[in-house]
Structures are given as C-alpha cells and as structure tokens.
Amino acid sequence: MKPRKVEAAARHFLLCAASLVVLVPIAYVVIASFKTLPDFFANPYGFPEEWAWQNYVEAWKQARIATTLTNSVIVTAASVLASTFLAALIGYGLARKDKPLALALYTLFISGMLVPVQMIVLPLFVVLRELGVLGTHLALILPYTALGLPMGVLILTPLIATLPRDLADAARIDGAGEWQIFRRVVLPMLRPGLASVMILNGVWMWNEFFIPLVLAFRPSTQTLPVGIMSFVGTYSTEWGLIFASVVMATAPAVIAYVAMSRQFVAGLTAGAVKG
C-alpha cells in the first residue's frame, strides 16, 4: 500500500502547487487594493501597514462603479434573457430537421459563431446610429442578443429534438396550439439546457470588453470592464484605487461562480464540447 500513498501525496503536492499559481496573483491583487500609495513603495511585498479601506470608498466614487455596475447588470441580464428565449424559440422551430429550411437555417445560425467581433463592430456602430439607439443600453443589448444566438441554438436545438414527442402530441390532441406546447411542455423540460446557455452567454457578456469599448463610448452607458479601463487612464498611478476597482468589478462574477461552481463548469463545458 506504501507506493499508493506516495502517489497520492505527490498528486496533492502538484495540485496544490497549481492552485497556488492561480490563487497567489489574485490574493496579491486583493492585498494590494488595501494599500496606500506610500505603502506600495515602503512595503511592496507584504501586508499593508494599515488596511486602507478608504481605497474602496474612493474607487467606488472615482471609477463610478455604481453606474458601471448597474449598466453591466442591466445589459447582461436583458441580453441573456432575450438571447436565451429567442434561441429556445428558434430551437423549437428547427428541431425537426425534415421540415423545409430547418437544416439551412440551423447552419446559418451556427456559422454566426465564427464571425470576429472586430469585423462587425464598426458597421454595427453605423447600424445602431441609424436606429437611434446609440448611447442607450440597447446599443449593447441588441448586438449581445444577436451574438448569443449561435451558442443558444447550437445547444438547445438538439436538446429539443431529443425531447419525447408523445407529450407534445398529447397536448396537441387536447387542442393546444403550437405556442402553448412550446410554453407549457417544451420550456419546462428544457431547464438544464437553458441554464447552460444562460451561464455560457452570461459569462462572456459580463466580461466583454471590445464591443462596449467601441459602442458604449458615453460614460453613462459604460459597463464595468470599460469603466475600469477609462478610470485607469485617468488615475494611472493610484495603484491602490485601481486594484480596489478591479476587485469590485470582479467580485460579483466570482461570488456567483463559487456559489454555483458545479453548474458553471457543467454549463460552460456543455457549450464547448458542442462547439
């Protein structure tokens, strides 16, 4: 039994080392966020002499976290819900591949995944200006919703296709319309798939940087990552404030992840294996 114990110890050693490589930089940023500027130079590597909570108060105000956090929540929530709902509708419409156009439309939606945002973001600017939504939350919600569809359709369509048909058929005999079947029979059975799509799209929408950098140029509509970046541009030497704002911007996603890590991992993996 001895060699097995050695093997287990070695395994723990390796996994702990890998975990430290992940955790040390994060912990170091959290510690740095409590330092005053002189503290950075007097005591760069240790804990702060005095924990500067006022960094958080200052950063909250200066980096306009209240505004950008609200914007991030509104934009992510609206886009995730709209995108997932539309993808479920599409999935229901295309689940039977023998129907006319079903396969062609399915392929069309899926290939949207390959489009680089760099290519469409500049024309999008023009489109959104013509629609008069530039400078509002819709300028982000509408593109996010469209860009979330490929992943949603990819995950949900095959799931809907494998749902048992007899339930829907029974409802149909009872006189239910297609819409009622979708809402009362299909949607409830689709819950795990919907959760996967919401997590997968929610994570990238929350973290997306390039699209809001271009499309949400007005300070009042900036989301967290862009808000932090423009804050850093103006206060490039206030390290304590910068890291306090980074910690505040990151905390919501990390808390949600730690609370539901199993769902996150399952949801994100489901999407990646399909893709």
Binding site: I90, Y92, G93, M119, V127, L142
Partner: peptide
Amino acid sequence: GHLWFVLPGLVVFATFLIYPMAKA
C-alpha cells in the same frame, strides 16, 4: 408553421449580425 418560431430571432440575427457583415 414552424418558421414563425424562428422569425423573431432571425430578425435580430439578420439586423445585428448578417447585415453588419455584409456592410463590412
């Protein structure tokens, strides 16, 4: 009939993904 379910998503997809691509 099934295409009614596809329509709303397709409109969004066409306006904010396909059209900008063509425009590009």
